[in-house]
């Protein structure tokens, strides 16, 4: 009965040490360990520039938001970034209420997020 979350990984053309991760489903307390492991492995392998596509991320709770902040912090510490694009308005509101919009790099769409990659 865990929430369903799927992650798919794609290279970003012309960008080194970078991946696009598409989040599909709900991110909550039942699946953060899975997401944490997948994304941290990627960062530890040197893929430190990450764009998270939230187009199909329906839901995120406070625990899910906690790991997004963790990814952002970890990527920055390794000289990279964790950028979020295509966020739906309900999920954005949760991030906004927690006051994390200033801590996370949020872009309207993938083109904007990709252009902001160094």
């Amino acid at each position: 009965m865990e929430s369903q979350i799927e992650l798919s990984f794609e290279d970003i053309r012309g960008k080194q040490c970078a991946k696009l991760i598409r989040f599909i489903g709900d991110l909550d307390a039942t699946n953060i360990e899975f997401v944490l492991e997948k994304v941290c492995n990627l960062i530890n392998e040197g893929i430190v520039n990450i764009i998270a596509d939230f187009k199909q991320l329906r839901y995120v709770n406070s625990t899910g938001l906690g790991i997004l902040l963790h990814f952002s912090k970890t990527a920055r510490e390794k000289g990279g970034c964790f950028k979020i694009a295509n966020i739906n308005e309900n999920v954005y509101e949760i991030i906004e209420i927690i006051g994390a919009t200033t801590l996370l790099e949020i872009y309207d769409d993938l083109d904007e997020a990709t252009a902001a990659l160094t």
Partner: peptide
């Protein structure tokens, strides 16, 4: 506002969120 802005804290924002919503 306890802990809600600390990026290194993974948990503990639930009650803040409930209060705001």
């Amino acid at each position: 506002e306890v802990d809600k802005l600390k990026p290194d804290v993974k948990r503990g924002r639930g009650l803040t969120l409930i209060k705001m919503l």
